[in-house]
């Protein structure tokens, strides 16, 4: 080939433009809209930067500080064997918080999920009320729930478990009710036509359909809760977060790096195990949509 397509097209540029005017016409309206949206986005960003005292000097000195911190983090070390044991225990606490919190939330949310499903309990007002109620639990961050529960059961991982359970109860209630609403009605009708009671219909028609979906969602939340449980200690609700908070406050950067590494490894292990379990259960590894 002596002439590439590109060269041929470039040679006939004027001809192409006259033959296909619509393709080459500038889209002025679209461009103006894009510009306005971009200007709005950037403008708000600039306003925020001014309001929050962003400055290049501050950014520069902060970044320089960060670089020194990273330098001080090497090599990561727990300090002493005794501290390492303490950290391991805190990590176990973190896992316990995530596990028990998720499980409790799922158990409590299961009946509520049935109640909130349109096809199990009809009634628009009831449905609306229960959904908004779940939203209240969901809308408050787990750290805030931890603060509330600390006032009730005192400092420690127990408060963390309760906080995790409260925050996830809302999320599970919503997800479960959606899973139940998406279930196929035919198996339930089949059970009813074979002479089963409504309870039989739920047990043999509905539950086998929704249980794998729910289990997969629970595992997905277990993963995300492992991440949240690592920081719940910042407010005193147990787990490795408390140690992380203390070490950052006292500038023990080597120990900070070690703790972060411990968290990263734990999260990776939990993700791996949970992905395998999910795959075994429903034959796919992605989180449910």
């Amino acid at each position: 080939m002596t002439r590439s397509l590109r060269e041929a097209a470039l040679a006939d540029r004027a001809g192409l433009i006259t033959r296909h005017p619509r393709v080459f016409a500038a889209d002025h309206r679209g461009r103006a809209l894009t510009l306005v949206i971009l200007a709005g986005l950037v403008g708000l960003m600039l306003f925020g930067g001014l309001r929050f005292d962003f400055s290049l000097a501050r950014l520069g000195s902060g970044l320089a500080q960060l670089a020194t911190f990273v330098g001080l983090m090497l090599p990561p070390t727990p300090g002493s064997l005794a501290r390492f044991v303490v950290y391991l225990h805190a990590l176990a606490e973190t896992l316990a918080i995530a596990f028990l919190g998720t499980l409790t939330a799922a158990l409590v949310a299961l009946p509520v999920g049935f109640l909130a499903a349109k096809n199990v309990v009809p009634g628009r007002l009831f449905h609306f009320g229960i959904r908004r109620g779940l939203d209240v639990f969901r809308g408050v961050d787990v750290l805030i729930w931890a603060l509330v529960w600390i006032n009730v059961v005192g400092l420690g991982p127990f408060a963390g478990i309760l906080a995790m359970a409260t925050a996830d109860f809302g999320a599970f209630g919503k997800l479960f009710s959606e899973a139940i609403e998406a279930a196929d009605r035919k198996p339930v009708e089949g059970v009813a036509s074979a002479g089963g009671s409504p309870l039989h219909g739920v047990r043999f028609g509905l539950l086998p359909q929704v249980l794998p979906v729910m289990a997969s969602q629970i595992l997905y939340y277990l993963e995300s809760n492992t991440r949240s449980a690592t920081i719940i200690g910042v407010v005193g609700a147990g787990g490795i977060g408390l140690h992380l908070y203390e070490q950052i406050r006292t500038f023990e950067w080597q120990q900070v790096a070690f703790l972060v590494l411990m968290i990263l490894v734990t999260v990776a292990v939990i993700d791996f195990v949970s992905a395998r379990l999910r795959f075994l259960m429903i034959g796919r590894a992605e989180p449910p949509a």
Partner: peptide, 27 residues
Amino acid sequence: EFCRTVPEIVFALVFVVAFGLGPMPGV
């Protein structure tokens, strides 16, 4: 993966030390 796995609060704690108190480390 690193940015996603380390919780925001941990970044915030470190950034507060580096950049000073206020909304900037939060952002």
